[in-house]
Write a protein that binds this DNA or RNA. Structure first.
Length: 288
DNA sequence: CTTTTCTCCTGTATGC
DNA sequence: TGCATACAGGAGAAAA
């Protein structure tokens, strides 16, 4: 559930605490954390050793550390937090976390970087960078609304071509990246449109409005350190953001809509939940 | 090709 | 108290 703002909080922590350091040792526990590194965890650890960390970058919910070293010149350690992944900067003598999957140590013997993940949907892999500096395995991920490569009209065009529900399309990272369940619900609430509307049936101005609100709400969340519900979503120092206090719809079932006072409703969606205002966001007529 | 469904996990909350 | 079940859900693979 870490979405763009939460991942960006982590990226900033990596930029501050990890960029500029030299990797001296990598320990991976189990195969799962490196399952997308096809050559296996031992290969990944060996290739990371003796690399310099040049930069910490992000697209959507993906993070990567740009590396220089014996392994490759234009390579990167690609990271995804999944639902419950955490990247923590910890003193070397701090006790191991229960769900510690990876430990990266540096030649300065300073604090180490740890990948901790309870639900293990997250992971890491070594990736080559393309000419634009994007890791090859995520070239299908669209630019997020804060990326210089983001093209609003192109996204509107893709949404206009979608014969699926708007919320589904907003969550599709090949259309626009960074948006997850929380910020999709908040953007739809702000735009006063129900996520069950067919994307292609909406006007261009309406789609621009939804995307504008998505960008806006994520920017506000980032300004507050992100959203946290259960202490799983933390920065590299283990601290939570507090945007959850500002949520209007997500997780607010039964509470009054901040705009009109009607109780926020919860609906099943893709085996999960969607939250919306029954008055401000009327349900579309069933298809047929 | 587009769109939907399934699957991977474990901790927490709830109901009987 | 204990056991079963629902739920949280990102994204890739597989199916439709």
């Amino acid at each position: 559930m870490p979405e763009l703002p939460e991942v960006e909080v982590v990226r900033r922590g990596l930029a501050e605490h990890v960029v500029g350091r030299h990797i001296s040792d990598v320990q991976l526990s189990g195969h799962r954390v490196a399952r997308r590194h096809l050559a296996g965890p031992e290969d990944l650890a060996a290739r990371l050793r003796d690399s310099d960390v040049l930069d910490a970058r992000r697209r959507g919910k993906y993070l990567w550390l740009v590396l220089a070293g014996p392994a490759a010149d234009r390579s990167a350690l690609l990271l995804h937090l999944g639902m419950s992944g955490q990247l923590l900067v910890q003193p070397q003598d701090a006790a191991d976390e229960k769900h510690l999957h990876a430990r990266i140590r540096f030649s300065d013997n300073g604090p180490e970087l740890r990948f901790v993940d309870q639900r293990t949907f997250g992971g890491m892999a070594l990736a080559d960078l393309d000419d634009a500096g994007i890791p090859e395995p995520i070239r299908h991920i669209a630019p997020d609304p804060f990326d210089p490569a983001y093209d609003l009209e192109a996204v509107v065009g893709r949404l206009r071509a979608r014969q699926s529900e708007l919320k589904r399309a907003l969550l599709d990272q090949t259309v626009v990246s960074g948006i997850g369940n929380i910020y999709a619900d908040e953007a739809l609430w702000r735009a006063q449109v129900h996520g069950g509307r067919i994307a292609a049936s909406l006007s261009r101005p309406m789609l621009r409005r939804v995307l504008g609100h998505a960008r806006e709400v994520m920017a506000e969340a980032l300004g507050q350190g992100g959203t946290s519900f259960d202490a799983l979503y933390v920065n590299v120092n283990g601290a939570s953001g507090y945007f959850d206090r500002s949520l209007a719809a997500y997780g607010q079932e039964g509470r009054p809509c901040p705009r009109c006072g009607a109780p926020i409703r919860r609906e099943a969606f893709m085996g999960r939940s969607s939250f919306s205002c029954p008055r401000c966001q009327p349900r579309p007529r069933p298809r047929g």
